[in-house]
Each structure stands twice: as structure tokens, then as C-alpha cells.
Simulated assay, not measured.
Amino acid sequence: MRDTDPRMRIITHAIERLIPARTPAFVSVAVSETVPGTRGIRGSWTGTPADVAERVYTALYGRPTTATAPEASPLEQAHQAKRNRDLAGEVGALMSAGTALESAPWYPVRPGDLVHVHYEAAGQTPAFGETYLIGPEDGGLMSMRLLAHTLPDEESAAGGMIGCFAVEAADDPIYELWVEAGPHRLTIVRDGRPVHTGRG
């Protein structure tokens, strides 16, 4: 889909960053033509950074696809690009994931934040979720500890994946989860309020 293509996101973010300390929802782009010898602007266009990104993307890569497909995590997008021998797409998927994380208004995570990840059903494993707690560690680092999960005990014993995103001490404990599971699968709660609800 258009909004999940990492190249489209990179172009959009590059346009939004033309204004330091911007609020992306309020950024617009104005293009005007002033012909010498006339008394004013002869033509103009106004749109959003996403409008401009779509025009640039189309000029570089062709029309964005609008086919509906399951949303992929940044890591899955990078693997797909690698299979397609698309080095720019592979690097772009990972870079845009980092950019999206670091430009989120709630970033960075703080001690006390709850991070919930939802996994879709796969094979014999039913859909389930995990909830992690962000905590402080020595030296200004943070941990992310598993609090609970909804996978039945017999499934979790066989799967061995429960708690795989737990982190003992890191500058950015959520990064691996953000890239591997994908932001669309995450819900982040701070002070009892959701600050990120994925795309669901």
C-alpha cells in the first residue's frame, strides 16, 4: 500500500523536515511561479508533504500500488526488498522505521510505559498478545520486562517465543520490537493513556 512503502515515507519525512521543530499534521507545501516582467505570481499549487511525496515517488518509481495486502513489519519489508534485489528499498525500510520511531511525539519510551504487542494467528498458533513494562536501569539505560501474555500454557511451552523481546539494559529497548513486529502491531500506554495505538 502507498503509506507502507518505505520510499514514500522517506520522501514525505524529508519534505516535512524542511521546517525544524515541525508538527507534521500542520505542514503544507506551496509552489508558485513568478514570471519576470509581470506584477505577481502567475501560477501556484498548494498541498501536503504526502501529495508532493506521491508526485516525486511516481516520477522515480511509477505509480504507487494500491493493492491491499497484509501490513508488513519494517523487517519483513526489508527482507522482501532483499529478495527483489532492491538495496535502496531494503535500507529504506529500516531507515524509515527508525525515523518513524524517533519522530513519534511520545518517543522515547519512559520507565512505567506499558508496551503491548499483538500477534496474528500463524499455523497452529492462535492469535495472542504480550505486555511488557519499561523500567529504569543503571547508567540511564532502560529495561523491557514481560508482564503477561495471552498464549495458552501448552502453546507457549511449545513455541518458545514468549518474552523474546525482553531487554535487560538498552538505550532504546523498544527498537527491536518496533522493527521486527512492526508499529502497526503495538499499543503503548503512558500514565494510563494510550500514546500509540498502531494502525488497527
Rank of each mutant, 00 (worst) to 15 (best):
R2D: 05
D3I: 12
D5T: 04
D5F: 05
P6W: 05
R7W: 11
M8P: 09
I11S: 05
H13C: 11
I15R: 03
E16A: 06
P20V: 01
P20T: 01
T23M: 04
V27Y: 00
V31H: 00
V31F: 01
S32Y: 00
S32K: 00
G37K: 05
G37F: 07
I41V: 10
R42L: 00
P49N: 03
P49E: 00
A50Y: 00
D51M: 03
E54D: 09
E54M: 08
E54S: 10
R55W: 12
V56A: 11
V56F: 06
V56S: 10
V56L: 13
Y57V: 04
T58Y: 05
T58C: 09
L60Y: 14
G62E: 05
R63L: 14
P64W: 05
T66N: 02
A67N: 04
A69S: 06
P70R: 10
E71P: 08
A72S: 08
A72D: 05
S73D: 01
S73W: 00
P74C: 05
P74T: 01
Q77V: 02
A78N: 08
A78V: 02
A78F: 03
H79G: 05
Q80Y: 09
Q80V: 11
Q80L: 13
N84G: 11
N84W: 11
R85N: 15
R85Y: 14
L87Q: 12
L87F: 14
E90S: 15
G92F: 14
S96R: 09
A97E: 14
A97W: 02
T99W: 13
T99C: 04
T99I: 12
A100D: 14
E102S: 09
E102C: 13
A104Y: 14
P105Y: 06
P105E: 14
P105S: 15
P105H: 09
W106Y: 10
Y107R: 12
Y107N: 10
P108T: 09
P108L: 13
P108I: 08
R110F: 11
P111T: 14
G112K: 08
V117E: 01
H118Y: 03
H118M: 03
G123I: 01
G123F: 04
T125P: 08
F128A: 02
T131F: 04
Y132T: 12
I134F: 08
P136M: 10
P136L: 12
D138T: 14
G139Y: 13
G140M: 08
G140K: 15
M144P: 15
A148H: 13
L151C: 13
P152Q: 02
P152R: 01
E154C: 03
E155P: 07
S156Q: 14
S156C: 13
G159D: 13
G159C: 03
G160I: 05
G160H: 05
M161V: 03
F165I: 04
V167K: 04
A169H: 08
D171G: 07
D171Y: 05
D172R: 03
P173H: 08
I174D: 03
Y175E: 07
E176Y: 00
E176A: 00
A181I: 09
P183I: 07
R185P: 11
L186K: 07
L186V: 12
T187C: 02
V189I: 06
D191L: 07
P194T: 15
P194W: 00
H196M: 09
G198V: 04
G200W: 07
